[in-house]
Design a protein around this nucleic acid. Structure first.
Lengths: 279, 279
DNA sequence: GCCGGCGATACCGCACGAGTATTGGTCGTG
DNA sequence: CACGACCAATACTCGTGCGGTATCGCCGGC
């Protein structure tokens, strides 16, 4: 299988429409149809259920979609890391969610900078869920992730810090001076639903809560009394005076981990990880 | 980058010889030369140091070799898993080193067979280091690996069992009735050097010990008084009467883990893992 | 019943990959 | 020092395969 075929299939599988997929790939529709047919013939597998009106993925097609994405990410990573190795201006890209673990991050960067062999660290502050993909595609060398929110599968990781979660309410809310709340009580706040974060494909899950993209949106929605939110305790420093926080002891604890590609051979990454562990 | 280019580069990088690489790829040498040149041009990176007499990898070339292998494995896995999903005769392939963890394996298979939702499990008994690759390439769905001997990086794992290592000596060896030995003492046995196992590429590291490929060879060499070996204690059941074993408390403990691809969506794998954890 | 949307098919042109023949440069050897 | 052996690069040709345009066939809706 060539990456071209995989790219074509991913486009079709995501659009579920040959015309739009072809447009996205900047080719005409007929060659795309043929390429997919040929892929199916070569694999000996039906990837799409075709009705004259619409197409749908078969079970095998769904598997290939997932696997092809990973394979394409691996190819992209190979290209990017090769370029980086050639440029060999020493430097490292660290990705993390904007706003999260700021204190830990600044301590880490300070401690690492004290290492005589330290190289320049470029920090990428990303939206939720992005650091994982950046790491997989070779755009970042190392990332700070937060279990269980981020998927750490496929990376090497070291735990750095674990903390409780708190619920953030608008100041003055009836429950705002409780000493603690349970998850059941938080979920029962129908007047203040938990927000919905975008999935990796950009779509939003169903539910009553407002759709949010970033932390600024979220804090504003909370202040407006339209939502509440669970977050790690350390984020309290990011909040405004019109927010109140209440611990939720039975919410899953959040662990900040440092993650890197399992086959990383970079000495700089290894040094940074060592620094992080010894913080 | 197309997989064809990656395959070509890997062949050249491994052979370090365009002629032999071309032969391996079953193409002529000139197109191969051109393909690599074109790859270098497109990446804007020198991958090979060329002297008229021989070629060597640049730093970027070494990075690409590693990354390209991973990417090609991912593509191969995509193909194989798609085929498997289409065949959808339920069944799972479990890979592990021949001879290792036999007792745990049979207990696991028995316990899993008792699960009403169990599917057929095909067991692949492999040489050392092989299960890892099989899992990565999609030839196996799940594997039993042994840290620190096997690399578990990039997989999801659960620890199943940890045990001490022992040194195996020919019966009648002067040290055979010691209650325990230290690593230093084992390494000092110049008359009984530790054997050399093949690396992933099939070559052997330098050293005094004999080259071994499998467990049968090893036990025979030990019985002949030509080698000693460190192994997990549970392997004692595989040994012959003319072997003696002595615990080595300061050797690293061996952990048997069950490993699976991090993005596995197979319910059967999940059930098997659950069974294994609850053993 | 007609139209519109969508995927498949027919056919064509060209770019690129692969083959053969050859060159150029660098060692080792007599 | 000259010659041959070796190896990668170049020159040139050929054929396959990818992509484009035009069109068909099928189905669903107004």
């Amino acid at each position: 299988m060539e990456t071209r075929e995989l790219r074509y299939f991913v486009a079709v599988a995501e659009e579920l429409h040959f015309g739009r997929a072809a447009q996205r790939l900047a080719i005409a529709q007929p060659p795309l149809s043929r390429a997919i047919q040929q892929l199916e013939r070569r694999l000996g597998v039906d990837l799409l259920h075709r009705t004259a009106r619409a197409i749908a993925l078969t079970k095998a097609g769904a598997v290939l979609l997932e696997e092809a994405r990973l394979a394409l990410e691996a190819v992209e990573a190979a290209e990017r890391r090769t370029r980086r190795a050639a440029a060999d201006r020493p430097g490292m890209v660290l990705a993390t969610k904007a706003g999260a673990s700021t204190e830990l991050l600044s301590k880490l960067l300070d401690a690492y900078a004290a290492d005589p062999r330290a190289v320049a660290v470029e920090v990428m502050l990303c939206g939720p869920g992005e650091p994982e993909g950046l790491l997989r595609k070779g755009r970042a060398d190392v990332a700070l992730l937060h279990r269980p929110y981020d998927l750490t599968a496929g990376f090497d990781t070291e735990d750095l810090h674990t903390e409780q979660q708190v619920v953030v309410l608008p100041a003055g809310h009836p429950l705002a001076d409780r000493s603690h709340l349970s998850m059941a009580e938080v979920n029962a706040l129908t007047d203040l639903p938990l927000p919905r974060w975008p999935r990796r494909d950009g779509s939003y899950p169903d539910g009553p809560g407002p759709q949010v993209r970033d932390h600024t949106q979220l804090t504003q929605l909370i202040a407006l009394g339209r939502a509440c939110a669970l977050m790690p305790e350390s984020l309290r420093t990011q909040l405004r005076h019109d927010h109140a926080i209440v611990p939720v002891p039975d919410a899953p604890a959040v662990t900040t981990v440092i993650a890197w590609p399992p086959h990383s051979t970079s000495q700089a990454v290894a040094n940074l990880v060592r620094t992080a562990i010894n913080l």
